[in-house]
Every structure is written in C-alpha cells, then in structure tokens.
Nucleic acid binder design. Structure first.
Lengths: 135, 135
DNA sequence: GCGCTAACTGGTAATCATTACCGGTAGGCT
DNA sequence: AGCCTACCGGTAATGATTACCAGTTAGCGC
C-alpha cells in the first residue's frame, strides 16, 4: 500500500516554526536566512517548497509589497475567511482586518461595469502606533 | 547655458504611443516587444527608463498583478486624482474606478488600530462583459 | 549652418528572487 | 531489516529589472 500522502519532516516543521516566530510578513529569503542563522539550516529550495504548499493548503497568506517582494505569513487556523491586512511598513507588525463593506462595494462596482468572476487585492500599509510614537 | 532639462526624442514618444495604443495594462516587456514588432525598435533599457520617468511624472499607473508582474498604463491627464482599477484578466481591458467610500473606510480602520501614514493598494480583477459573453 | 556639451540611447553584463533539475537521503510500511 | 517513494538541498536555469558605459544626438549660442 502507498505510504502516507504527507510525511512529517524536520524541515517542514522548521519552516512553519520560523513563520510562527516571525509574527508578521516575511519573504522566503528571510525565512531561509533566519533558519540558517539559528543553526537550523534548511535548503532554499525546500523553504520555497514548503512555503508554496502551505499557501496551497491555505495556512499562510501571501502579499506582494509595493516593491514587488513576495511575503508570507501564517494566518487563520483553517485558512477560511477572506480578510485583508494592515501592515506596519516599519516593523512588519500585521493586523488582520475584515471588510465586508469593501467586498460588497467591489462586487457592486464590478457588476456595474459588467464584469464577472471578480477577485480583488487590497492591502493597507501604514505605521503602527508604536512606530509612530518612536519618532 | 544648459540645454533643455528634458529633450524630446523619437524613443520617448514611441514608448508613450505604445502605451496609448495598448489601451490597458501591459508589462515593460510587452511594450518592448510591441515596438520592436512594429519596426519602431527601442532598446529595452530605454523602455524601462521612459516607463520609470512617466511613473515619476505621474502620467502612468503601475500595478503588480497577482502573479508578480509589473504592468504600466497611461492614465489620468495630469496624474492627479487617486483611483483604482478594474482589470479584465483575459483581455486586459481596464476601467478606472473611484472609491471614496473605500478610502474613507481604509482611513477609519487604520485609525482604529492606531496606525498612521496609511497608504493602500487595491485592484479588482475580473472578466469583462465581452469576455464573459465569449464563453 | 556649425560646433559644442550634456542628456539620451541601447547592447551587454550584473542582480535578485524564484523555479527547475536531479542525485542522494530518509520516512513509513511490511 | 529492506524496499519504495516522497522529500532534501545544492546548483544551474530562468525571467524581469537595473547598472554600466561608450557612442549618438537634440538644442543652444554663434
């Protein structure tokens, strides 16, 4: 019979742990560097691989910063529930926010223009209370 | 005395024309290919250069597709007026939309979380009326 | 029209993040 | 213990964007 569909490996956990302790969004390269510097080395390919499968599994969210960098963040237990993020552009702290009003608005606007199958991206970037105070 | 701060060159116009006739969003590579195929060749470096300066001048908008590609589009006469886009993911047709309600919502949410200096990205992707009908 | 100078051009090399390959490793089952 | 297969991870490849830099040219004064 075929072995388990999904093996549990040291590296798999390491990547997830890194995301957990990171707290906010971080790039694949960040995860790689973090693991490496804490002696828990994992191959770069492997990091990308796990990140990708976590995304597919809906366990992490992905956003592209305005600079075009792809960042990942461990999110919502089961990946259900569409939501957006309010990210501090200095410390990376992230707040999850819901925007039912926006979803509705988006759907309405799209319909007005005759568009179907609408999807959207929405991210807020700012400076969190602490970073604001620190100036 | 120093010559004009900004020269007008064949290539500069070519890039702008390409964006104009493209109508929707297109990547730098697309512009390059388009110009090249219509015999109006312009160096790739030059395309990027002009695209960048047009962005700086506020004459074109930039958005990153979910796939991470950077696309450009000639927009708003003088670059004034913050707005968003409703892009057809099949034909690229783009509608400019305003979302005062969203702007306001974003500001409110951010304030609630103590964030300042808030900025945001918002793009809608869908299938336009025509492409919808074509299925 | 002529010449000058600085801005512009464009081919090539360099960067950077991400993906593809592929021989080697090691879970998990029997 | 032994096998089968998914998983690892170093390296090469890719693709978009930027940096360099020598050659070209627009625009100004004469």
């Amino acid at each position: 019979m075929a072995p388990a569909r999904q093996r549990s490996t040291r590296q798999g956990g390491a990547v997830k742990d890194a995301l957990t302790s990171a707290g906010g969004f971080c790039s694949a390269q960040d995860v790689y560097a973090a693991l490496r510097s804490q002696g828990d080395a994992v191959g770069l390919s492997t990091v990308y691989r796990h990140l990708q499968s976590l995304v597919d599994a809906g366990q992490v969210d992905v956003i592209h910063t305005p600079e075009g960098e792809t960042t990942y963040r461990l999110c919502g237990e089961a990946g259900q529930g569409h939501h957006h993020h309010l990210v501090c552009r200095e410390c990376g702290r992230t707040a999850e926010i819901e925007g039912r009003a926006v979803e509705k608005w988006a759907a309405t606007v799209a319909a007005e223009h005759g568009y179907t199958d609408v999807d959207h991206t929405l991210e807020l970037f700012g400076r969190c209370a602490e970073c604001s105070a620190a100036r």
